[in-house]
Amino acid sequence: MNSGIAFRTIAVKEIHRFFRIWPQTLLPPAITTALYFLIFGKLIGGRIGSVGGASYIDYIVPGIILMSVISHSYSNVVSSFYSTKFQRHIEELLVAPVPNWVILGGYVTGGIVRGLAVGGVVALISLIFAPVSVHHAGICLSIVLLTATLFSLAGFINAVFAESFDDISIIPNFILTPLSYLGGVFFSVDMLSGHWQTIAMGNPILYMVNAFRYGMIGATDIDVALAFGITGGFVILLTLFSLYLLHKGVGIKN
Protein backbone atom coordinates (compact mmCIF):
# COMPACT_ATOMS: atom_id res chain seq x y z
CA MET A 1 0.00 0.00 0.00
CA ASN A 2 1.44 3.33 -1.10
CA SER A 3 0.21 5.80 1.53
CA GLY A 4 1.81 8.72 -0.35
CA ILE A 5 -0.52 8.20 -3.32
CA ALA A 6 -3.55 7.95 -1.03
CA PHE A 7 -2.51 11.11 0.83
CA ARG A 8 -1.99 13.01 -2.41
CA THR A 9 -5.34 11.81 -3.74
CA ILE A 10 -7.27 13.09 -0.70
CA ALA A 11 -5.32 16.36 -0.44
CA VAL A 12 -5.63 17.17 -4.17
CA LYS A 13 -9.33 16.27 -4.13
CA GLU A 14 -9.87 18.61 -1.16
CA ILE A 15 -7.89 21.49 -2.67
CA HIS A 16 -9.58 21.06 -6.04
CA ARG A 17 -12.97 21.08 -4.29
CA PHE A 18 -12.64 24.56 -2.79
CA PHE A 19 -10.92 26.05 -5.84
CA ARG A 20 -13.73 24.71 -8.04
CA ILE A 21 -16.28 26.64 -5.96
CA TRP A 22 -14.12 29.77 -5.53
CA PRO A 23 -17.12 32.17 -5.64
CA GLN A 24 -18.26 30.49 -2.40
CA THR A 25 -14.87 29.98 -0.81
CA LEU A 26 -12.45 32.73 -1.89
CA LEU A 27 -14.60 35.66 -3.00
CA PRO A 28 -16.72 36.30 0.14
CA PRO A 29 -13.71 36.80 2.48
CA ALA A 30 -12.25 39.27 -0.02
CA ILE A 31 -15.44 41.36 0.08
CA THR A 32 -15.96 41.07 3.87
CA THR A 33 -12.42 42.03 4.74
CA ALA A 34 -12.38 44.89 2.23
CA LEU A 35 -15.36 46.27 4.18
CA TYR A 36 -13.52 45.74 7.50
CA PHE A 37 -10.52 47.66 6.21
CA LEU A 38 -12.69 50.43 4.82
CA ILE A 39 -14.96 50.89 7.83
CA PHE A 40 -12.74 49.97 10.82
CA GLY A 41 -9.41 50.85 9.25
CA LYS A 42 -10.04 53.97 7.23
CA LEU A 43 -13.27 55.53 8.45
CA ILE A 44 -13.22 54.76 12.19
CA GLY A 45 -9.51 53.92 12.53
CA GLY A 46 -8.49 57.35 11.28
CA ARG A 47 -10.05 58.86 14.42
CA ILE A 48 -8.57 56.31 16.85
CA GLY A 49 -4.93 57.17 16.35
CA SER A 50 -2.12 54.71 17.06
CA VAL A 51 -2.34 51.41 18.97
CA GLY A 52 0.77 49.57 20.15
CA GLY A 53 2.95 52.05 18.32
CA ALA A 54 1.25 51.50 14.93
CA SER A 55 -1.59 53.21 13.07
CA TYR A 56 -4.92 51.52 13.78
CA ILE A 57 -5.26 50.09 10.27
CA ASP A 58 -1.73 48.64 10.43
CA TYR A 59 -2.62 47.22 13.83
CA ILE A 60 -5.77 45.42 12.68
CA VAL A 61 -4.45 44.03 9.36
CA PRO A 62 -2.62 41.00 10.91
CA GLY A 63 -5.62 40.12 13.09
CA ILE A 64 -8.06 40.27 10.18
CA ILE A 65 -5.78 38.09 8.04
CA LEU A 66 -5.44 35.51 10.82
CA MET A 67 -9.17 35.63 11.62
CA SER A 68 -9.87 34.73 7.98
CA VAL A 69 -7.33 31.91 8.13
CA ILE A 70 -8.97 30.55 11.31
CA SER A 71 -12.55 30.63 10.05
CA HIS A 72 -11.79 29.26 6.59
CA SER A 73 -9.45 26.44 7.57
CA TYR A 74 -12.08 25.38 10.12
CA SER A 75 -15.06 25.66 7.79
CA ASN A 76 -13.27 23.88 4.93
CA VAL A 77 -12.65 20.72 6.92
CA VAL A 78 -15.87 20.70 8.92
CA SER A 79 -18.07 21.12 5.84
CA SER A 80 -16.08 18.80 3.59
CA PHE A 81 -15.68 15.96 6.06
CA TYR A 82 -19.27 16.20 7.26
CA SER A 83 -20.49 16.12 3.63
CA THR A 84 -18.29 13.07 3.10
CA LYS A 85 -20.07 11.41 6.03
CA PHE A 86 -23.52 12.67 5.03
CA GLN A 87 -23.24 11.51 1.41
CA ARG A 88 -21.61 8.31 2.64
CA HIS A 89 -18.53 8.50 0.44
CA ILE A 90 -16.52 8.20 3.66
CA GLU A 91 -17.18 4.50 2.97
CA GLU A 92 -14.77 4.70 0.02
CA LEU A 93 -12.00 5.58 2.48
CA LEU A 94 -13.04 3.11 5.16
CA VAL A 95 -13.23 0.14 2.79
CA ALA A 96 -9.82 0.96 1.26
CA PRO A 97 -6.57 0.30 3.17
CA VAL A 98 -6.05 4.01 3.85
CA PRO A 99 -4.31 4.56 7.21
CA ASN A 100 -6.10 6.91 9.60
CA TRP A 101 -3.22 9.40 9.59
CA VAL A 102 -3.55 9.67 5.81
CA ILE A 103 -7.28 10.42 6.05
CA LEU A 104 -6.62 13.05 8.72
CA GLY A 105 -3.58 14.45 6.92
CA GLY A 106 -5.42 14.72 3.60
CA TYR A 107 -8.37 16.65 5.02
CA VAL A 108 -6.20 18.86 7.24
CA THR A 109 -3.98 19.69 4.26
CA GLY A 110 -7.08 20.83 2.38
CA GLY A 111 -7.99 23.05 5.34
CA ILE A 112 -4.49 24.50 5.62
CA VAL A 113 -4.31 25.32 1.91
CA ARG A 114 -7.75 26.95 2.02
CA GLY A 115 -6.72 28.97 5.10
CA LEU A 116 -3.50 30.09 3.41
CA ALA A 117 -5.29 30.88 0.13
CA VAL A 118 -7.89 33.02 1.93
CA GLY A 119 -5.15 34.61 4.08
CA GLY A 120 -3.27 35.46 0.88
CA VAL A 121 -6.40 37.00 -0.70
CA VAL A 122 -7.06 39.08 2.42
CA ALA A 123 -3.41 40.20 2.56
CA LEU A 124 -3.66 41.34 -1.07
CA ILE A 125 -6.89 43.25 -0.32
CA SER A 126 -5.21 44.91 2.68
CA LEU A 127 -2.54 46.33 0.33
CA ILE A 128 -5.23 48.58 -1.13
CA PHE A 129 -5.76 50.20 2.28
CA ALA A 130 -2.40 50.01 4.06
CA PRO A 131 1.24 49.29 3.27
CA VAL A 132 1.77 45.73 4.52
CA SER A 133 5.20 45.17 6.05
CA VAL A 134 6.73 41.95 7.36
CA HIS A 135 8.83 42.33 10.48
CA HIS A 136 9.73 38.63 10.81
CA ALA A 137 8.72 36.38 7.91
CA GLY A 138 9.62 33.13 9.70
CA ILE A 139 7.32 33.90 12.64
CA CYS A 140 4.52 34.99 10.29
CA LEU A 141 4.69 31.85 8.21
CA SER A 142 5.10 29.39 11.09
CA ILE A 143 2.31 30.84 13.25
CA VAL A 144 -0.11 31.03 10.31
CA LEU A 145 0.69 27.41 9.41
CA LEU A 146 0.25 26.24 13.00
CA THR A 147 -3.00 28.20 13.34
CA ALA A 148 -4.40 26.82 10.07
CA THR A 149 -3.42 23.29 11.17
CA LEU A 150 -5.00 23.74 14.59
CA PHE A 151 -8.33 24.97 13.25
CA SER A 152 -8.40 22.39 10.46
CA LEU A 153 -8.04 19.73 13.16
CA ALA A 154 -10.78 21.38 15.23
CA GLY A 155 -13.03 21.40 12.17
CA PHE A 156 -12.30 17.72 11.62
CA ILE A 157 -13.28 16.84 15.21
CA ASN A 158 -16.47 18.90 14.89
CA ALA A 159 -17.35 17.00 11.69
CA VAL A 160 -16.68 13.63 13.33
CA PHE A 161 -19.21 14.37 16.09
CA ALA A 162 -21.72 16.25 13.90
CA GLU A 163 -24.98 14.45 13.19
CA SER A 164 -26.68 17.23 11.23
CA PHE A 165 -25.80 20.37 9.28
CA ASP A 166 -26.85 22.39 12.35
CA ASP A 167 -24.06 20.74 14.31
CA ILE A 168 -21.41 22.06 11.96
CA SER A 169 -22.54 25.67 12.33
CA ILE A 170 -22.95 25.83 16.12
CA ILE A 171 -19.25 25.97 17.01
CA PRO A 172 -18.24 28.46 14.28
CA ASN A 173 -21.15 30.76 15.11
CA PHE A 174 -21.26 30.57 18.89
CA ILE A 175 -17.68 29.81 19.88
CA LEU A 176 -15.20 30.52 17.10
CA THR A 177 -16.52 33.90 15.94
CA PRO A 178 -16.82 35.41 19.47
CA LEU A 179 -13.37 34.08 20.41
CA SER A 180 -11.92 35.54 17.20
CA TYR A 181 -13.48 38.97 17.76
CA LEU A 182 -12.37 38.93 21.41
CA GLY A 183 -8.92 37.61 20.45
CA GLY A 184 -7.32 41.03 20.11
CA VAL A 185 -8.02 41.46 16.41
CA PHE A 186 -9.41 44.98 16.81
CA PHE A 187 -7.90 45.99 20.17
CA SER A 188 -4.86 45.67 22.37
CA VAL A 189 -5.35 43.64 25.55
CA ASP A 190 -3.90 46.64 27.41
CA MET A 191 -7.11 48.53 26.58
CA LEU A 192 -9.05 46.10 28.80
CA SER A 193 -9.35 46.71 32.49
CA GLY A 194 -8.80 44.38 35.49
CA HIS A 195 -10.46 41.02 35.32
CA TRP A 196 -11.45 41.44 31.63
CA GLN A 197 -7.77 41.41 30.81
CA THR A 198 -7.36 38.17 32.81
CA ILE A 199 -10.33 36.60 30.99
CA ALA A 200 -8.95 37.70 27.60
CA MET A 201 -5.64 36.01 28.41
CA GLY A 202 -7.54 32.69 28.60
CA ASN A 203 -8.47 32.97 24.91
CA PRO A 204 -5.96 30.98 22.83
CA ILE A 205 -6.76 32.98 19.70
CA LEU A 206 -5.32 36.07 21.42
CA TYR A 207 -1.89 34.41 21.46
CA MET A 208 -2.00 33.44 17.80
CA VAL A 209 -3.17 36.89 16.67
CA ASN A 210 -0.49 38.61 18.73
CA ALA A 211 2.29 36.30 17.51
CA PHE A 212 1.22 36.94 13.91
CA ARG A 213 0.99 40.68 14.57
CA TYR A 214 4.50 40.57 16.01
CA GLY A 215 5.71 38.83 12.83
CA MET A 216 4.12 41.54 10.68
CA ILE A 217 4.55 44.84 12.56
CA GLY A 218 6.69 43.91 15.56
CA ALA A 219 3.97 44.73 18.12
CA THR A 220 2.58 42.18 20.60
CA ASP A 221 0.75 42.04 23.93
CA ILE A 222 2.08 38.60 24.86
CA ASP A 223 5.22 36.48 24.87
CA VAL A 224 5.59 35.10 21.30
CA ALA A 225 7.35 31.94 22.52
CA LEU A 226 4.37 31.24 24.78
CA ALA A 227 2.07 31.69 21.76
CA PHE A 228 4.02 29.07 19.81
CA GLY A 229 3.98 26.75 22.83
CA ILE A 230 0.20 27.03 23.26
CA THR A 231 -0.59 26.68 19.54
CA GLY A 232 1.84 23.79 19.05
CA GLY A 233 0.52 22.09 22.18
CA PHE A 234 -3.05 22.31 20.93
CA VAL A 235 -2.00 20.97 17.52
CA ILE A 236 -0.41 17.89 19.11
CA LEU A 237 -3.39 17.37 21.42
CA LEU A 238 -6.01 17.66 18.67
CA THR A 239 -3.98 15.46 16.30
CA LEU A 240 -3.84 12.69 18.88
CA PHE A 241 -7.53 13.09 19.68
CA SER A 242 -8.50 13.02 15.98
CA LEU A 243 -6.47 9.85 15.40
CA TYR A 244 -8.10 8.26 18.45
CA LEU A 245 -11.57 9.11 17.08
CA LEU A 246 -10.71 7.61 13.69
CA HIS A 247 -9.24 4.51 15.34
CA LYS A 248 -12.43 3.99 17.35
CA GLY A 249 -14.60 4.83 14.34
CA VAL A 250 -16.52 7.45 16.35
CA GLY A 251 -19.21 9.04 14.17
CA ILE A 252 -18.18 7.07 11.09
CA LYS A 253 -18.62 3.40 11.97
CA ASN A 254 -21.27 1.41 13.80
Binding site: M1, I5, A6, I10, K13, Q87, E91, E92, L93, P97
Partner: peptide, 20 residues
Protein backbone atom coordinates in the same frame (compact mmCIF):
# COMPACT_ATOMS: atom_id res chain seq x y z
CA UNK B 1 -22.22 6.31 -2.00
CA UNK B 2 -19.97 8.17 -4.40
CA UNK B 3 -19.63 11.94 -4.59
CA UNK B 4 -22.36 12.89 -7.02
CA UNK B 5 -20.67 16.21 -7.81
CA UNK B 6 -17.63 14.50 -9.29
CA UNK B 7 -17.23 13.13 -12.80
CA UNK B 8 -17.33 9.39 -13.40
CA UNK B 9 -13.64 9.44 -14.23
CA UNK B 10 -12.68 11.30 -11.02
CA UNK B 11 -14.63 8.83 -8.90
CA UNK B 12 -12.68 5.93 -10.37
CA UNK B 13 -9.28 7.65 -10.26
CA UNK B 14 -9.76 8.73 -6.64
CA UNK B 15 -10.72 5.19 -5.71
CA UNK B 16 -7.54 3.90 -7.33
CA UNK B 17 -5.57 6.54 -5.42
CA UNK B 18 -7.00 5.35 -2.09
CA UNK B 19 -5.56 1.92 -2.90
CA UNK B 20 -2.18 3.41 -3.82
Amino acid sequence: NFNQFETVSSILLNQAGYYG
